[in-house]
Design a protein around this nucleic acid. Structure first.
Length: 568
RNA sequence: GCCCCUAUAGUUCAGUUGGAUAGAACACAGGUUUGCGGAACCUGAAACCAAGGUUCAAAUCCUUGUGGGGGCGCCA
């Protein structure tokens, strides 16, 4: 519908002597602050200097020109100051949007703008020495939602995960296990296996306070690991598998699945050829001590060391290698890294070095998201102020169960299923509604609230729509009579979905979808309070509207990685 | 010390990328029972960190200051 407005404006502007491209016109079109003013607005301020006239005057002339064209889609075109406001034929619009939503179903709102592209999205890439925490939940929510957004716009997505399974942090857990964990296994302790590993990491840090020598022991163990010491490798394999098996349970519960998995342990020496290449091109320099570094002062990034003086490589070298492997093996157009903003500097240097190595315009992007803070401040692993991912999910699920039990009798299985869907909706929505790049506060009390701007509230409105449709039975065609204001508002909100999905795709920001979902759910609740559906004069249209709403909200939630429920 | 990010009701967040009257939610005060599920709906009070600048137009862009967060290892 916007395109019709654009076309009309382009023709009228040309008659006034201004040639503008469609995209230029589309860009300035906005939505008026209130819907009585119109559905689309065109501000004329920027034309004032070109036409050497008052913006108000231009608006009037523009309106006069447009009025002369034959039109079917509009009730009226008005001006208000320097704005030309287009008022759509509401019945026509409602018919169109509702019909499209109902018939296009899952495809409603999709675009093909990304067709033919292949993009890798890497998340959450944890360390294998301790279980996932709240930050990883934000990471996974964002990673999955962005993957869905890309797919919704035609992109072929490859979901990847990189395990940071090598280094001193791993050796710390291993050392603690060697010292104090003899013969115990996750099964014998009846504990989730990644938590089992994490407990030893905590144990290491506790004992480190009493015995500083442990730090050296961990370093010594890393040396043995690098030398290929069989005993150390055996233990490493055992514990890494425990960690990963535990993660896999969490991924499954959280609803994410990877297509590719990378391991730092297999990659960390693969960047050598790249380093040698850089040395040949004099991009990198070897100092007298033997370490290899690159000067990035020009970019304001300082000096970066790539190889230690003993010849072993640093973390960034494997990221260099991995970037290349990704593009060569998977024929990518883009590669996105979902990693917290604390690593902004790392990615700046990484991309800068790759650029210098001739790896230009490869669509590498750091999807940097803000830190998750607690009311008490930052989460600190060693001080035990971390919110554990599994614990959080379990805790929220328990609260949902209590709520469900107080409402209806459910079978155990149904209780489990519903409570999981609702609690994941609560957590994911809470984490996704905030602008990806901003730090956020995770208030445990607010996160278990199920009223207002929350996942459960949105799921509830979906379930109510389903309930109405269930009661009414199957419907076919519909007729539109006079529309109530709430019906119109709901229709307009539905019509915005394709635009919102596209904007979220362009800005790679799921929070737009989250906020839209809430606004849509809220309008629906207002609508069904104001307008009876079943048995009303406009039953056929209202039912269709409810169905369209249900469809669009379902599509919207799907983009957030949130499942829906027919009953709550 | 240097670099990056950030600042909107009591609190947590929006604000269509520079446009018309800055929107919600929570909390607070009050209300909606005989209609499709009250995890709902309605009413009320409450905000752009400060000072300059650019512009027809600034919460949005620039400068400075102040507050908050992060990064500056031959760690990952």
């Amino acid at each position: 519908m916007k395109q019709v407005v654009v076309n009309l404006l382009q023709k009228a502007l040309e008659e006034l002597g201004v040639k503008l491209k469609k995209e230029e016109i589309e860009k300035v079109i906005e939505t008026p602050p209130s819907s009585d003013m119109g559905d689309y607005a065109f501000p004329c301020f920027f034309l004032a200097s070109k036409l050497k006239s008052e913006p108000q005057q231009i608006a009037l002339e523009l309106r006069a020109k447009i009025k002369k064209f034959p039109m079917t889609d509009f009730d009226d075109i008005q001006t208000s100051g320097a704005y030309v406001n287009f008022i759509l034929d509401r019945k026509n619009m409602a018919r169109k949007i509702v019909w499209e939503a109902i018939t296009q179903k899952k495809n409603f709102g999709k675009s093909k703008i990304g067709a033919g592209r292949r993009t890798m999205v890497e998340f959450p890439s944890p360390n294998t020495n301790k279980p996932l925490h709240l930050g990883h939940l934000r990471n996974m929510s964002i990673g999955e939602s962005i993957s869905k957004l890309l797919e919704f716009n035609g992109v072929k997505v490859i979901r990847a995960n990189l395990y940071n399974d090598r280094g001193t942090h791993i050796c710390k857990s291993m050392l603690a296990y060697q010292k104090w964990g003899r013969d115990k296994t996750p099964a014998s302790k009846k504990i989730k296996s990644d938590h089992f590993v994490g407990d030893f990491y905590v144990m290491f840090n506790k004992n480190l306070k009493k015995n500083k020598k442990l730090e050296d022991d961990a370093q010594a163990m890393l040396m043995k690991w690098e030398e290929g010491d069989k005993r150390v490798l055996l233990l490493w394999k055992l514990m890494t598998n425990w960690a990963i098996n535990g993660f896999n349970e969490t991924y499954k519960k959280f609803g994410i699945k990877h297509d590719v998995t990378f391991f730092e342990s297999k990659l960390y020496e693969k960047g050598r050829t790249l380093v040698e290449e850089g040395l040949k091109n004099k991009l990198f320099v070897k100092s007298k001590k033997g370490d290899v570094k690159i000067n990035l002062e020009g970019e304001g990034l300082g000096e970066k060391i790539l190889l230690r003086s003993d010849g072993t490589s640093l973390y960034i070298v494997q990221d260099l290698a991995l970037a290349k492997i990704k593009f060569e093996k998977y024929k990518l157009n883009e590669s996105y890294y979902v990693v917290g903003s604390e690593h902004d500097y790392h990615f700046k240097t990484l991309f800068s070095i790759l650029d210098k190595l001739g790896f230009k315009n490869k669509g590498l992007k750091h999807l940097s998201y803000g830190m998750v803070n607690l009311p008490e401040g930052k989460m600190k692993g060693r001080e035990g102020t971390v919110v554990d991912a599994d614990d959080l999910i379990e805790k929220v699920q328990e609260l949902v169960k209590k709520e469900l039990i107080s409402r209806a009798k459910l079978s155990k299985r149904e209780l489990e299923k519903r409570s999981l869907v609702i609690s994941l909706a609560a957590i994911k929505y809470f984490l996704l509604k905030i602008d990806i790049k901003k730090d956020m506060l995770f208030n445990p009390k607010a996160s278990i609230n199920f009223e207002g701007d929350t996942g459960p509230y949105i799921l509830y409105s979906y379930a109510r729509a389903s309930s109405i449709l269930r009661k009414a039975g199957v419907q076919g065609k519909f007729n539109i009579g006079e529309m109530e204001p709430k019906e119109l508002e709901l229709v307009k909100k539905l019509s915005q979905f394709p635009d919102v999905a596209l904007r979220a795709y362009n800005s790679l920001n799921p929070s737009l979808i989250a906020n839209y979902s809430f606004q849509l759910a809220k309008l629906f609740n207002e609508f069904y309070h104001a307008c009876p559906v079943i048995g009303s004069e406009n039953e056929s249209f209202r039912l269709a509207l409810v169905e369209a709403f249900r469809r669009v909200l379902g599509n919207s939630l799907n983009l957030l990685g949130i499942e829906t429920l027919e009953e709550m």
